[in-house]
Computed example of a mutant assay.
Amino acid sequence: MTCSTCEDFSQPRPIRLPADLTSAILLLQAAVAQGRLTVLPAYSATYTLPAFSTLDAEGPWHEIVENRFACTACGQKYLLSAETYHGHGGSLEVMTAP
């Protein structure tokens, strides 16, 4: 469940174009800088994922972008995921499972 600190992340944001990913990264960078979200450790059993701190909003991006965040007030978790190389898109959305 979201709170007033993270409510602007409560609706899924589809990523269909590079501009959508740029927008999501800039939004998340601002929220982290404001102390509203914290970056959670990146983990994937399949891919080596770059840290969010190294992610350039304008690219170039790794083939897979996958970063997790948590609200500093309520703990709600969010996932930014995108498959950039083949253009399959992705999303910025609430995580419903760990």
Rank of each mutant, 00 (worst) to 15 (best):
T2C: 01
A24T: 02
T48Q: 14
T96W: 09
L49W: 02
E7P: 00
S44L: 01
G90C: 05
A97W: 07
T54P: 03
G59Y: 10
S53R: 15
I64H: 13
V39R: 00
Q29A: 14
S10G: 04
T72L: 08
H62D: 15
V94S: 13
E93L: 15
P50R: 09
A31C: 02
C3V: 00
S53Y: 02
P60R: 13
P60M: 11
Q76Y: 01
T54S: 14
T38P: 00
T96E: 11
N67L: 04
S44A: 06
R68Y: 11
A57Q: 09
L79A: 08
E93N: 14
C3G: 01
G90E: 07
A31P: 04
P41Q: 05
A30S: 13
L80F: 03
V39D: 00
A45E: 12
S81I: 14
Q29R: 15
S4V: 00
L55N: 07
W61N: 06
A31L: 05
I64R: 11
T84D: 08
M1S: 12
R16W: 07
T72W: 09
A30C: 07
R13K: 05
N67E: 12
T5G: 02
N67I: 05
M1V: 10
R36M: 04
T54C: 08
T54R: 14
I64Y: 08
H86M: 09
Y47L: 04
D56R: 12
P12T: 10
M95T: 05
C71E: 00
P41F: 00
A24G: 02
Q34H: 07
T38A: 04
W61M: 02
R68A: 10
N67S: 11
T96R: 14
L49I: 09
S53N: 12
